[in-house]
């Protein structure tokens, strides 16, 4: 790229604080026309070429005409919803199809208002925002993992089929699942939420002052205390509840897969099963 802006202000630029909002005449800037136009045109051209080749080479699927009397087994949602469909193994539809998508969208919208960390705007910065990067990345990986499982590894009756296994072989689940009692289930859910909310605050206050400075326990306490104090009670509570909801998904998956728990809490009178 040719330099189109010549100015003798580099000395001034050097004295500017590290993250100052740049002025329009700064020499860090490049004209949009034509330099950014190249990028746009190349993006457009490459997209066109890829999409066109893809459309030429791979015919889009068109199955037999819709027949309401012939339910294919399995019936799969479009790929971007297959992750939610996969969650139907572990949750009732009101959670997998309504509550969790609502929490995902609501949680995404809440991100700018609960992440008060002002580091790293406009740059790839992991050092100053490890927690945020980890939570977002884990959520994203988990989302795509569920999609891959649902799309490639599920066959008839939503049973597990390896890609090389034939769907002709009939599989059935012989797992006998059970539900927890009303009391046990309520206690578990209340306990999960309460412990998740309170423990990170309580630990530093209870044992923080009793351990040696410099030990790893002390360091953990300091990190937790800072985590809470940076956020304040309200934002801490919202953030933790969203986090607990997200972590609740693998928790329920483990309970279902390894302990054969169908419902933690079951209230048939109002269709409320968790």
């Amino acid at each position: 790229m040719a330099t189109t802006e010549q100015s003798g202000k580099s000395g001034q630029a050097a004295r500017r604080p590290a993250r100052a909002v740049p002025t329009a005449s700064s020499e860090r800037f490049e004209l949009t026309w034509p330099y950014f136009m190249y990028t746009i045109v190349i993006c457009f051209l490459l997209t066109t070429i890829v999409l066109w080749l893809w459309s030429m080479v791979v015919p889009a699927p068109l199955e037999p005409i819709a027949d309401p009397n012939k339910t294919p087994n399995p019936s799969k949602a479009p790929w971007y919803f297959v992750g939610l469909q996969e969650l139907l193994v572990y949750f009732d539809p009101w959670i997998a199809g309504v509550v969790l998508p609502g929490l995902i969208l609501g949680g995404l919208m809440a991100i700018p208002y609960i992440d008060k960390n002002t580091h790293g705007i406009g740059e790839y910065n992991y050092k100053d925002r490890k927690f945020a990067v980890w939570v977002f990345s884990l959520g994203t990986v988990f989302w795509f993992l569920l999609i891959i499982i649902g799309y490639f590894f599920r066959g008839p009756s939503w049973q597990w089929y390896w890609p090389w296994e034939s769907w002709e072989i009939h599989k059935e689940s012989h797992v006998v699942t059970h539900n927890w009692s009303l009391l046990g289930g309520s206690l578990f859910l209340i306990g999960y939420t309460a412990i998740g909310l309170v423990l990170p605050v309580a630990i530093p206050y209870l044992i923080g002052s009793r351990v040696k400075p410099g030990s790893w326990i002390k360091k953990c306490c300091e990190v937790l205390q800072e985590f809470y104090e940076k956020r304040g009670a309200t934002i801490y509570a919202i953030e933790m509840l969203l986090l607990l909801a997200m972590l609740g998904i693998p928790v329920k998956m483990v309970l279902r897969l390894f302990f054969n728990v169908k419902y933690i809490l079951e209230i048939p009178a109002i269709n409320l099963n968790i």
Partner: peptide, 20 residues
């Protein structure tokens, strides 16, 4: 309006019937 279409939409719409 092929088999893929109506059954995928059926799966999706069935989630709606479980809305609280």
């Amino acid at each position: 309006w092929d088999q893929l279409a109506i059954w995928a939409v059926t799966v999706g719409a069935n989630m709606a019937r479980a809305t609280p």
